[in-house]
Amino acid sequence: MDEGRLRRLAGALEQGPAAYGFGVDQRWTLARVSDVIARMFRTRCTLRGTTNIMYRLG
């Protein structure tokens, strides 16, 4: 994932899970982040791939 997409993803995650329809529990999980990545960039990531992306985000 390039730096531009990483910045866009970081901004999206800062909005919180409720902004993406996850209403009950307000914590990010790897599955939820993977779902947001799929919605934003129309590409699927494995949970391991999502872990690597989150590591890059810090």
Rank of each mutant, 00 (worst) to 15 (best):
D2C: 05
E3Y: 05
E3A: 13
G4W: 05
G4F: 07
G4S: 10
R5K: 15
R5D: 05
R5Y: 02
R5W: 02
R5F: 01
R5S: 10
R5A: 01
L6H: 03
L6M: 15
L6F: 03
L6S: 04
L6R: 12
L6V: 00
R7P: 00
R8V: 05
R8W: 02
R8S: 08
L9D: 03
L9T: 00
L9W: 00
G11W: 08
G11E: 15
G11C: 03
G11A: 15
A12N: 04
A12C: 10
A12T: 05
A12D: 06
Q15S: 06
Q15V: 02
Q15K: 10
P17W: 00
P17T: 15
P17H: 01
A18V: 13
A18C: 08
A18P: 10
A18M: 08
A19H: 15
A19L: 06
A19Q: 13
A19D: 08
A19F: 10
Y20F: 15
Y20T: 01
Y20S: 01
G21V: 14
G21M: 09
G21T: 13
F22R: 00
F22D: 05
F22N: 03
F22I: 10
G23S: 12
G23C: 07
V24E: 14
D25K: 10
D25M: 08
D25F: 08
D25G: 05
D25S: 09
Q26W: 08
Q26C: 08
Q26K: 15
Q26E: 13
Q26A: 14
R27W: 11
R27D: 10
R27P: 04
W28I: 06
W28G: 07
W28A: 03
T29E: 09
T29G: 06
T29M: 05
L30W: 04
L30D: 11
A31E: 15
A31D: 13
A31W: 12
R32W: 00
R32Q: 07
R32H: 00
V33R: 05
S34C: 03
S34Y: 02
D35G: 11
V36H: 01
I37N: 00
I37K: 00
A38G: 08
R39W: 07
R39P: 01
R39G: 04
R39T: 09
M40R: 10
M40E: 14
M40Q: 14
F41N: 06
R42A: 14
R42V: 09
T43F: 07
R44N: 10
R44G: 06
C45P: 00
C45E: 11
L47K: 12
L47M: 05
L47H: 06
